[in-house]
């Protein structure tokens, strides 16, 4: 890398320490969850932990309510991600390749569900569901999640389109490939990692969403809803600790991979243009 945006100068110790402390502040609370899933203490959050046990993992495994909440969350996240992948990619392709009246408002419309407080989306969907007398179901949760997942895929794919040279598509067409072949052999391989990154972020976003879900789930319990009910009225503290750990582990992998994918592609993107 030739173009260094950093000055190469040394930061003062004060700045280094402040930056390091901020980093700790961001991460230590997440480690605390790990710690507490091993506490033998059933009724309080005593620190230092009075002992060490792994028995709550077994207890959590045997809890059918936890299992059904987990499967519901996984199913919702899978379907919402699929919907977001299709809708987000279509919108990104439209915005990238064409100029049309109101193009700016498309981005605005897509980003609105995450720019406005989640409660606005939640109560709005709740009102519409109530007004149309639609019964709460698996699909009401999915529809709610898809509204804010689309923008994640859209942003990732659009950014990739903008870095992909348009001449590639023209070359493919000139060489006699039809639109479908061009998509299969030129466009798709180019945007594949962007789709993967966007899809994984959408999955993580949907899997642990709680605010919109509160309004669209009715009596159904997703894993975040289960944890939320324990937050306000703690009954099973040790099991909740394990459930929180499960959420962290399930969301960490896709988030981390998505970050790596986008970081790498932007690095290679820079070296290409440089």
């Amino acid at each position: 890398m030739r173009s260094k945006s950093y000055s190469g100068a040394q930061a003062s110790w004060g700045l280094k320490i402040a930056a390091f402390l901020t980093l700790l502040f961001l991460h230590v609370p997440i480690w605390i969850i790990f710690l507490y899933s091993f506490t033998p203490d059933e009724t309080t959050y005593t620190f230092p932990l009075p002992g060490f046990t792994t028995r709550w993992f077994g207890v959590a495994l045997g809890r059918s309510d936890l299992w059904s909440a987990l499967t519901l969350s996984l199913r919702v996240a899978a379907v919402a991600t699929l919907a977001a992948l299709v809708l987000g990619t279509l919108a990104a392709a439209a915005v990238y390749r064409s100029n049309f009246f109101g193009k700016e408002s498309v981005s605005f419309l897509l980003v609105l569900p995450i720019a406005l407080p989640g409660i606005v989306t939640g109560i709005a969907l709740r009102t519409a569901i109530g007004g149309l007398e639609i019964p709460f179901s698996f699909w009401t949760i999915v529809i709610g999640h898809a509204t804010f997942c689309v923008v994640v895929v859209y942003n990732n794919v659009l950014a990739r389109f903008r870095r992909t040279s348009g001449s590639l598509v023209e070359a493919s067409m000139d060489l006699g490939a039809n639109a479908f072949q061009t998509f299969r052999y030129v466009i798709f391989p180019n945007i594949a990692t962007a789709l993967l990154a966007g899809g994984m972020l959408a999955f993580a976003l949907s899997f642990d969403e709680v605010i919109v879900t509160t309004f669209t789930s009715g009596q159904q319990t997703t894993l975040p809803i289960w944890i939320f009910s324990q937050l306000t009225r703690p009954r099973d503290r040790p099991v909740t600790n394990v459930a929180a750990l499960i959420v962290i582990l399930i969301t960490f992998v896709p988030i981390f991979l998505a970050q790596r994918l986008t970081a790498e592609s932007s690095e290679t993107g820079e070296s290409k243009s440089g």
Binding site: A204, I227, L231
Partner: peptide, 9 residues
């Protein structure tokens, strides 16, 4: 990106 709810917890 990671769970907002769990971080509150």
């Amino acid at each position: 990106w990671s769970s907002y709810l769990v971080r509150v917890y």
